[in-house]
Simulated scan of single mutants.
Amino acid sequence: MLRFVLLCQLMAGLVFALNGYADDVHPMPLILAHRGGAFEFEENTMEGFRACYERGIRGYETDIRMTKDGVLVLLHDDSLDRTHNASGPVEEKTAAELKDVQTKKGQSFLLLEDFLAYFQDKPGVYLELEMKTSNKELYPDARIAEYCDKLYAMAKKYKPTDSDYLFTSFDERPLVAMRKLDVHWPIAIIASKPLSLEFIKRAERLQATHIACQISGTSREMVQQAQKLGYKINGWPGRKVEDYYLAIGLGLDVACTDIPTVIQQTKEDLPARDKE
């Protein structure tokens, strides 16, 4: 019954998108599993990433931080309190101190190297590696270079040749550093605001290739304008099926969602011609 309701809802969204813009049909947005599907699994865990991959999802977003002794790990918050059986920032702990830390449901704390190693033999994957460096107390300017050098080296080491790995951030500092390390590697600027001309100019200044904007308030016209300039547009947050309808209507390239397997199921239930 649930699948039938979701299918009807998604078909309604597609009718709006395709009928409203029949002369300019954009491909369906890539499903991006936000933190590995944060509303379906414990966020930033191998359980979530593995389950999504086995379900056929090929887009993933995760959050990268660095321990006191320079080890890169996956964690969204400035502290471990909400998601793990520990407290305080990982930036103030060593990798050895995190060895026995588990999530609230008993999963292992995830290192970036283990995460990337899982995808190393899985071609055709799109990864957004968000650099969580905005807190300048945890990441003063002097620490950005070390963080970026290590992240770039590890991503380059593990990335399959036919996969797309992006460095993304709200913080301009690591984006500037990454562009200096590699003029060709795709990067994305994120902001908690709709797409606008000001946002596009900011992306241009940073030599970004992608823009991650809030879906709410973003117009199809602005998305098309950015795409004509060569940018790929990611819309967020995605917390319900209706958010994916909006992503379709806006013509987004990527739809960041906390319910990736739900969206994937509704897409699979569509007639073949509607998925082209």
Rank of each mutant, 00 (worst) to 15 (best):
L18C: 13
I259R: 00
P260S: 03
G70Y: 09
V254Q: 08
F115I: 04
A208E: 04
D269I: 06
K68S: 13
Y158L: 05
E198V: 03
T45P: 05
D274N: 09
V90E: 12
M11T: 06
L175R: 03
G37I: 00
A117G: 09
N19A: 15
L32I: 09
N234K: 02
A255K: 00
F115M: 11
G56Q: 04
K240S: 13
A95L: 14
K193C: 11
D121I: 06
M66W: 08
N44A: 05
L138H: 04
Y158S: 11
V15A: 11
L80G: 04
R220D: 15
E40F: 01
S134G: 08
Y147H: 08
I31M: 01
D69I: 10
A51E: 04
S79M: 05
G230N: 04
D100M: 12
G88A: 14
G124H: 12
M11K: 07
G238W: 03
G37E: 00
L7M: 05
D121F: 05
F49C: 06
L129W: 01
P194E: 13
F16P: 01
K122S: 03
S196P: 05
L151T: 12
A95P: 02
D69W: 14
M222C: 13
I233S: 06
E146C: 06
E40C: 09
C148D: 13
L7W: 05
G70K: 08
T103V: 08
D164Q: 10
P194M: 11
L98T: 14
R50H: 05
L72K: 03
P260Q: 07
P186V: 04
L195P: 01
G238K: 00
P89T: 09
Q9L: 08
V15Q: 10
Y21E: 13
L30H: 07
S108E: 10
Y126R: 12
A153N: 07
L110E: 08
Q264A: 03
W236H: 10
T209K: 06
Y21N: 13
A191Y: 09
I233H: 09
